[in-house]
Design a protein around this nucleic acid. Structure first.
Lengths: 224, 224
DNA sequence: ACGTTGATTTCGTAA
DNA sequence: TTACGAAGTCAACGT
């Protein structure tokens, strides 16, 4: 990895065109050739960048100003003019062992599979990841009357999730051994527009309390 | 901005928990206190990070190993153990003038609002961002026969956009004062699958020439 | 190789 | 301030 701190101007041309006026920034060049231009604020997203695979050609423009031309796979280009180089160093980082995660949507699905009744009175689990031709339904349950209930789980409930559940329900309701199948859209938070669409399609909405579920799951974390 | 290259171990606890084993990486500390941990590959997204506003406390753990504790607003924490520091430098970057973009969907919508006839013979604009219960339709137009036409605009036309327009049309066609409403799916580029789906649903596709539109908009940019 | 789905998404804009 | 959609989204996973 190479780190360059310099006054620079950056121009990108690809799916869009973007321009950064001359200012002092960090230019990071990774081992695979990818380039990131960071300022001293914002979030983790660079001001401008080129994703791998790409190629960097270092040249010299007018007035002896260094010019880097980065070319991507789809013909997009990033041009960097380096006016004053304040720092330039290279480092051998080796291969990273990678990130280990825990606590994402998968976890929410596991908790709800253990406590399906929190989604609706008397619901019991049939199976998780119930297979269909267009992908697995998060949870398949049964209600006290013996009816089938398909559950789609999201961390944040938006319109896309309702669409997804709608597709599952359409398919499942063609199966005479399951029909009729109703749907529950479960999420930690449900956006108003998603709720409108779900209600319009006869899909119930369930807001899930992740911490409460975790408490039910692990008695040690209960408060009483 | 401070740049540290070091063998380090990183642990995050917040909305999820994440762990990075000991390895050599770049740790970037921005002026607002935000921290980014980058490896030498991947994309522009760091392996781990803390978004501003946050606070960094440098301490010393067992065996004299440096330990940084980064605390975010929502009580999430990032703990960094620095075993071997290979590089450590600080740089004053100042405030960045910011990025200028061009060519996004908004601009395309403005241009098409000014020239609706490029979408279909004799079309005229009723209004941009025509409101519905599930969100605004990009353009609402009227054809020479007085029929309503809903237009969904994308830079790249994919299946999601067709689904979106379908939802609008379904809703709009329930309104007796508008009915019947037909749809046009407009984009700079339309993926084959999206075109198939649109056609199947009786939605017309319009491929938009951004440069030509811009030329119509600004006579100075015309080539002839 | 391609499509689908999730994300500590981030970022902008309009209500 | 909030809420929503778009992103040069990226990345993991299944077909």
């Amino acid at each position: 990895m190479r780190l360059v701190v310099a006054r620079c101007q950056v121009d990108y041309a690809g799916r869009l065109t973007a321009h950064l006026p001359m200012a002092t920034r960090l230019v990071m060049v990774k081992n695979d050739g990818s380039v990131l231009v960071h300022s001293d604020g914002g979030s983790y997203k660079p001001l401008n960048w080129m994703s791998p695979p790409c190629k960097v050609v270092e040249g010299t423009g007018e007035d002896g100003v260094a010019e880097w031309l980065v070319t991507g796979r789809e013909g997009d280009t990033l041009r960097i003019l380096l006016a004053d180089v304040l720092h330039d160093s290279a480092h051998d980082l080796g291969v990273d062992p990678g990130l280990q995660k825990d606590g994402v949507e998968r976890h929410l699905q596991e908790l709800l599979a253990d406590h399906p009744a929190t989604l609706g009175e008397g619901l019991s689990l049939v199976r998780r990841e119930f297979p269909t031709a267009i992908g697995p339904v998060d949870l398949m349950c049964r209600d006290p009357q013996g009816g089938s209930v398909a559950v789609e789980i999201k961390r944040r409930g938006e319109i896309d999730g309702v669409e997804q559940l709608t597709r599952y329900l359409e398919l499942l309701n063609r199966d005479p051994t399951l029909r009729p199948v109703r749907g529950i859209f479960a999420a930690q938070e449900i956006k108003p527009q998603a709720r409108v669409l779900a209600t319009d399609r006869g899909i119930a909405c369930a807001v899930v309390d992740y911490d409460a579920l975790r408490g039910m799951d692990d008695p040690a974390e209960r408060l009483f």
